[in-house]
Amino acid sequence: MEKNPDMLPKGVLHAVLGGKKFSLQRYEPSKEIGYFVQHYWVVRWDLRGQAPYSQTVLAHPNVNLVFEQGASGIFGVAPSTSSHMLAGQGHVFGVKFKPGGFFPFWQKPVSELYGTSTTIEEVFQVDTAALEAEILQLPDDQAMVDRFEQFLIERLPQQDPNVEKISQLVARIQADRNVLKVEDAVRLSDMTLRTMQRLFDRYVGVSPKSVIQRYRLHEAAQLIDQGVVSDWLEMSIALGYYDHSHFIRDFRSIVGVSPQQYRQIQSL
């Protein structure tokens, strides 16, 4: 189902503006692959005769494998926001691994991918250019999903119980607005603080603190985009912040502007 602007996922900044420029659709993986992969996604745009559009994203704590003409690769979690220029007509096919789900393929600390990328060849020993051309030339989204499912199922590693443990914990952090500190996440788990930090470095690629911060800021940006924020302090409290200034510092450090400046951009 095509997403309308209000249904674009958290992390797509200025979603109301972006929803006018591109479409985003997501597809569930098969059961076996779903142990490692959260979903597939396809972005399509047609800006022929229009000015290019730069879409900014605040990344989730996930590794993404992306097929884009001339720019395919495997991308770790970005330190802050990242922007992608859309021009002409095109599409991108992506694979969003679960938090922790890429490690069994990579077999190295996922923190080594933080803020950077690696080639598909390095991980899967395949000719990226040939696979990129094959997938992107397929006639529709489902055909791309089916082709990559076939590719991946031939290369599935053994299931690692830490993947399920980590992905479930990250989902709980995302859902619970009261999780603002690492100690709050520890209370949700059966891990010690040190164990959690070690597993997040190895499997997720960023710290528990970073995961918590990102999800709270996703919610804040979504509320601003929807135009429903009338009181900054009230929103801060609703998101679990006890100190409004702490919220502003977090927002500025990751998004790059203050919440007020972000709202002004949205209204332009």
Results as ranks from 00 to 15, higher is better:
72 S>C: 02
51 A>R: 13
88 G>E: 07
23 S>M: 05
59 A>F: 00
72 S>G: 07
74 I>S: 02
75 F>L: 09
45 W>D: 11
47 L>C: 04
107 Q>M: 12
65 L>S: 11
32 E>W: 02
101 G>D: 12
89 Q>F: 02
105 F>E: 09
82 S>M: 11
41 W>D: 05
117 S>Y: 14
121 E>W: 08
28 E>H: 08
127 D>R: 04
103 F>Q: 15
70 G>V: 10
78 A>I: 02
91 H>A: 09
54 S>W: 02
109 P>D: 07
70 G>S: 06
109 P>V: 05
103 F>R: 14
96 K>I: 00
81 T>M: 05
84 H>K: 15
83 S>D: 14
25 Q>C: 06
22 F>M: 12
70 G>Y: 04
42 V>R: 00
69 Q>V: 08
105 F>T: 08
33 I>C: 03
31 K>M: 06
81 T>D: 09
39 H>F: 12
37 V>S: 05
127 D>V: 03
21 K>Y: 01
85 M>K: 14
93 F>Q: 01
49 G>W: 09
26 R>V: 09
81 T>I: 15
99 P>C: 13
90 G>S: 06
125 Q>F: 04
82 S>R: 14
121 E>F: 10
93 F>I: 00
49 G>A: 01
47 L>A: 12
27 Y>S: 13
66 V>N: 04
29 P>K: 01
102 F>K: 06
23 S>N: 15
28 E>N: 14
71 A>I: 06
79 P>H: 08
89 Q>D: 10
90 G>I: 01
125 Q>C: 10
61 P>A: 08
21 K>S: 09
75 F>I: 05
100 G>R: 05
86 L>I: 00
61 P>C: 05
82 S>D: 08
103 F>L: 15
24 L>F: 13
50 Q>M: 12
53 Y>L: 01
90 G>R: 00
127 D>Q: 12
27 Y>A: 08
70 G>F: 03
48 R>I: 04
94 G>L: 07
57 V>Y: 09
56 T>I: 06
99 P>H: 09
29 P>R: 00
33 I>P: 15
126 V>P: 07
81 T>G: 12
77 V>Q: 13
63 V>Y: 03
76 G>Q: 06
113 L>E: 03
27 Y>W: 14
113 L>Y: 07
86 L>E: 00
111 S>L: 09
65 L>I: 09
118 T>M: 05
115 G>K: 01
84 H>M: 11
89 Q>C: 11
59 A>C: 14
